[in-house]
Write a protein that binds this DNA or RNA. Structure first.
Lengths: 160, 160
DNA sequence: TGACAATTTTAGACTTAACTTAATATATTA
DNA sequence: TAATATATTAAGTTAAGTCTAAAATTGTCA
């Protein structure tokens, strides 16, 4: 009966943090998450309660926090959104790594699955191009820097 | 002394709505905005009060709502974010128009100026290409649809 | 011109989200 | 086992965004 809906940005951040921490630490405690996100332990406890109600994490009182399968799946998805976005803004649009990261951190909570799929395919198209960096991408980056097109474009003429 | 900060998504929506309506109607009333956004007039009044405090709109009680220069500027910016994003997702990533619109409506509130600038340049690079649709873009779209690369890419070989 | 209709405004309340502090409870470990 | 670290709860704050219902204003037209 309950409508689940999407997690809020904040809850996604908690879930992502738990997932990230569990990749390095074997066990994750309230304290770790609190430190990582810069909030009080009390805030973590509330958030974990919500995540637990949604069966994304498991947590016995005073115990460790662990992700359920569903939690891992969702955290992975969030992180994937993050990395795809970061790669796009960094590698394609040439944003400096910091800005690309910051952009990804925000947009990862808002981009739709559909849009992400396309973005993913785009990156795939570029990064798995059989022969290194596609010529047009070099042209784009040149254009971003100088405002001028490389000669390749005009030369291709009239293929309407 | 007051920290202005950014508008919330909701307030941006109000500002954008006022701007859009004023492009077609000469004058904009509380009622119009309420209808357009699907909220009650009371909600519009509260929002307009905030926007007025920020000198983005002017509004004498019981009168019309008009944008200040600053308001126009900011609304234009929001709308630009919207259109750039919509164009990107529709024309480059090949999202259907509806999805592209919906995506733009959400992301327009979150994308940074820096990221938008790059996106803009990217579209410029593509859409103002001297000779129609760049070949690589056709290749991308072909790849999106079929998962297969057109022959052009392998042929370009080894330019590392 | 005066009353009715439409519109706007206010006041008050509700909901949700996210967070905090302070007090209490449980674990860990020296 | 007492001191320390950690976790939980309870209660409260702030903020945004909305609503309803009542009151105020304005516009219109018979």
């Amino acid at each position: 009966m309950k409508d689940k809906g999407r997690l809020t940005s904040s809850l996604e951040d908690y879930l992502e943090a738990i997932w990230l921490l569990s990749r390095e630490s074997k066990v994750v405690r309230v304290r770790d998450v609190a430190r990582y996100l810069g909030v009080t332990p009390a805030s973590v406890v509330s958030a974990v309660k919500v995540l637990a109600r949604r069966r994304l994490v498991e947590h016995e009182p005073y115990g460790y926090i662990s992700l359920t399968d569903k939690g891992v799946e969702q955290a992975t998805q969030i992180y994937k959104r993050h990395t795809i976005l970061a790669r796009f803004f960094r590698d394609i649009l040439g944003l400096d790594p910091n800005s690309a990261e910051r952009t990804a951190c925000i947009l990862e909570h808002h981009i739709s699955e559909k849009a992400l799929t396309r973005l993913t395919k785009f990156l795939e198209f570029v990064e798995e191009c059989p022969d290194a960096t596609p010529y047009w991408l070099k042209g784009l980056h040149h254009y971003m820097k100088t405002g001028k097109r490389s000669v390749i474009c005009p030369l291709r003429g009239k293929q309407r």
